[in-house]
Amino acid sequence: MSGPVSGQLVASFAGETELLAAVRTVRERGFRVHDVFTPYAVHGLDEALAAPRSRLPWVTLAGALAGLTAAVGLQVWCAVVDWPLDVGGKPANSALAFLPISFELTILLGGLATAAAFFWRSGLGRRFEPRLAAPDITDDALVLVLALDDGREGEARELLRAAGAREISTLRETRETREAPEETAA
């Protein structure tokens, strides 16, 4: 990815307090956090990483507007333009009666578009056996993956250990070794 000596340091934590403290410390010391893997959504992590807000709500808005337009268009075209059928003497364009279906389709397309965008952006469904940073991240391990852009590995290890990491290992940035950590220290 970046630089000839690049690699990653994988530090595993037992609790979110330690993890959050570690994230703050390493960022203050100028390290780049590659990613964080956790068994549940840790609140405060996005803020600690100064991560940008998700743009998913815009997809919802677009989907909802598309749903609304489609619903109103379909109903008006069918019931007013294409074949204005007299039902109980009601006017062809009885707009109020079109409200429930317009509402439902707004919700439907808004929700489906957001879910689809989520799957697409997160790359879910592309690979069914993901390379996990540590075997326990879907169980009880909170894992911080640090990018070693400039090789300050010793310093990084020390910081992470001081922050309470229970396990630290190094990943060299080559396709073959990414799956197996080459070295483990308690």
Binding site: V42, L132, T138
Partner: peptide, 12 residues
């Protein structure tokens, strides 16, 4: 679907 617990995914 290949869920890996990444922070970015959790956030979204």
């Amino acid at each position: 679907l290949g869920w890996d617990g990444s922070r970015r995914t959790w956030s979204r």
